[in-house]
Simulated scan of single mutants.
Amino acid sequence: MRPRSTVLAALVTALGIGLAGCGQQPPVSQTHSGGQADTSSQADPAARWADGYCSAVTHLVRTLANLPEIDPSSPEQASRTSSRLLSSVVDGIDQTVEGLDRVGPPPLPGDDQARGDLLKQFSSVRSRADTARERLDTATDASTTKTALSDARATLDDVAALDVLQALNATPELSAAGKRAPDCQQLVVPPAPR
């Protein structure tokens, strides 16, 4: 059982597709983290917003890249390690949502619906992950453990289906701003070798 690789592969693919055009170098080659805008984006509110947005979703990307392994050696171990994995996912979502709350709505009128939709999706997936983790923690027999593990896997599939860049790609203006934002450049996935 290796849902970790499935989740990570799906997320990396989504990120690669979503930011395929963002491979140019930022205008000023100052890299930083934490959503702090450099001097090149001070006069560009959309790029500053995109930078903060990308910094926020990086929390979830890093969490998914560093998920704990699931130990399938026994139902008890699979349950215990899956619970830890789901706790990590919940923490990553929480950090991302906090970051998105700090960033606030985009600076362009009418562009906040995609961000709001994403926050609702995060809330729903987080709730399902927490419920699945609780079921794993309270499973008392093989049947309930098997059901809880199935729920956990479905929840991880839900996480993999999240389009963390949907608000950034909601409009051409925000998508272009992402190309100018240093933290968005860090999310670019290099093309696979042929």
Rank of each mutant, 00 (worst) to 15 (best):
Leu11Ala: 13
Leu15Arg: 05
Gly16Trp: 00
Ile17Met: 06
Ile17Val: 10
Gly18Pro: 00
Leu19Tyr: 01
Gly21Ile: 03
Gln24Glu: 13
Pro26Gln: 01
Pro27Leu: 13
Val28Arg: 10
Ser29Trp: 08
Ser29Leu: 14
Gly35Pro: 03
Ala43Leu: 15
Ala43Asn: 15
Ala46Phe: 03
Ala46Thr: 07
Ala47Cys: 05
Ala47Arg: 05
Arg48Gln: 13
Gly52Leu: 06
Gly52Ser: 12
Gly52Phe: 04
Val57Cys: 01
His59Gln: 09
Val61Ser: 14
Val61Ala: 03
Arg62Asn: 11
Leu64Gly: 06
Ala65His: 10
Pro68Trp: 10
Asp71Thr: 03
Ser74Gln: 10
Ala78Glu: 11
Ala78Ile: 06
Thr81Val: 14
Ser83Tyr: 06
Ser83Gly: 15
Leu85His: 14
Leu85Tyr: 15
Ile93Arg: 06
Asp94Arg: 07
Thr96Asn: 08
Thr96Phe: 12
Gly99Asp: 06
Asp101Val: 14
Gly104His: 14
Pro106Glu: 14
Leu108Lys: 04
Gly110Arg: 00
Gly110Ser: 06
Gly110Asn: 00
Gly110Phe: 00
Gln113Ser: 01
Gln113Ala: 13
Ala114Val: 01
Gln121Pro: 03
Ser124Met: 10
Thr131Lys: 09
Ala139Arg: 03
Thr140Val: 11
Thr140Met: 09
Ser143Lys: 11
Thr144Gly: 07
Thr144Arg: 01
Thr144Ile: 01
Lys146His: 12
Leu149Gln: 07
Arg153Asn: 15
